[in-house]
Design a binder for these strands. Structure first.
Length: 308
DNA sequence: ATCCAGGTACCCA
DNA sequence: TGGGTACATGGA
């Protein structure tokens, strides 16, 4: 432990540290923060930093040691999803595949988790997550990050040079639409502003979702402008830790369709059936089980070459 | 230049 | 309920 400390010249900054225990392994901070579940975190000199609610968090992983500042010891594990046990999760997923009818192992899944099993599903702030994924519609990850960075710069309080909080519902809803559009928000600007307005009028909207069943919570979220099934599932998975939520984007749709649903009749080239959102998501829950959200994350985070 | 990206709202039968 | 289409933006 003390040896790890000397490898970081700035390590005295970090007021907290702990070592990952057995049930927390494997864990890869880089993978977790850069796989597209959270935006706006930056890595500099080996340290990740980003904004969470009203604070700046800085986190470093060195082997099995985690150094951090900006939050209390009780909070960091929950934020990073370290209380999920990957062995338990993957074992559960494998068992459900057998129940579904697999005779042997699923080689495609096994190959994918080689690259992604150390990623975790985090517990983001629901409002921040909601804003982020409304921004994500029909965009790519770099563009989404830029867009959110601009919104924070323009509408979020600057608490340290270069660090702005997420814009709160008032700031977002009361600004002229043109200013929101300038943050590369495009046609999403009115969605952001109208949703912000609803949450400003009803500040408990998001906290009430905690006590609802998955499907009810999803229905509630989808009443918000700019929130369809995909965005609702992202918020439920990445903020509320509803691990049965399966966000179906074009990439997951392609993977599930090609590798699991469109079992080649003879060889490729048939007209590929376009499965509905619920067909894809329901298949994942039936096949992967209650940790389908993690299975989805493993497939999404794995390297591109593994499916093709 | 065209197509695509962690989609949704709206319209129409 | 289910199937097209417009919607901004930037990168490949």
């Amino acid at each position: 432990m003390s040896q790890a400390i000397h490898t970081f010249c700035t390590i005295t900054l970090f007021v907290h540290s702990f070592s990952l225990t057995c049930s927390m392994l494997p864990f890869d901070l880089d993978l977790t923060l850069s796989c597209g579940q959270i935006f706006g975190w930056k890595k500099a000199a080996g340290a990740w930093s980003g904004v969470y609610r009203d604070r700046i968090l800085t986190i470093v992983q060195k082997g099995t040691d985690i150094f951090y500042e900006g939050c209390e010891p009780g909070e960091i594990a929950g934020f990073l999803g370290l209380d999920d046990d990957p062995v338990v999760i993957i074992t559960s997923i494998r068992r459900h595949m057998q129940t579904y009818g697999n005779v042997g192992e699923d080689p495609f899944f096994e190959q994918n988790i080689q690259f992604s099993q150390a990623s975790r599903i985090m517990r983001q702030d629901p409002w921040e997550c909601l804003v982020s994924f409304i921004c994500s519609a029909n965009s790519n990850i770099p563009l989404i990050s830029r867009r959110i960075g601009l919104l924070m710069e323009r509408f979020g309080e600057e608490i340290r040079p270069g660090y702005n909080l997420f814009p709160d519902p008032e700031a977002l809803s009361e600004s002229p639409e043109s200013v929101v559009r300038e943050c590369l928000a495009g046609y999403r600007a009115p969605y952001l502003q109208r949703t912000a307005g609803i949450l400003r009028e009803d500040p408990d909207f998001l906290s009430r979702l905690v006590s609802l069943e998955y499907k009810e919570a999803k229905k509630r979220l989808m009443t918000l402008p700019g929130v369809g099934p995909k965005v609702a599932d992202c918020v439920l998975l990445f903020a509320y830790h509803r691990l049965e939520a399966v966000p179906v984007d074009v990439r997951i749709r392609r993977i599930i369709t090609i590798r699991y649903l469109d079992v080649p009749e003879k060889d490729g080239l048939g007209e590929e059936k376009e499965y509905s959102y619920d067909e894809i998501a329901d298949f994942c829950r039936a096949y992967f089980g209650p940790y389908a959200g993690y299975a989805q994350q493993y497939l999404f985070a794995a390297r591109d070459e593994t499916y093709e």
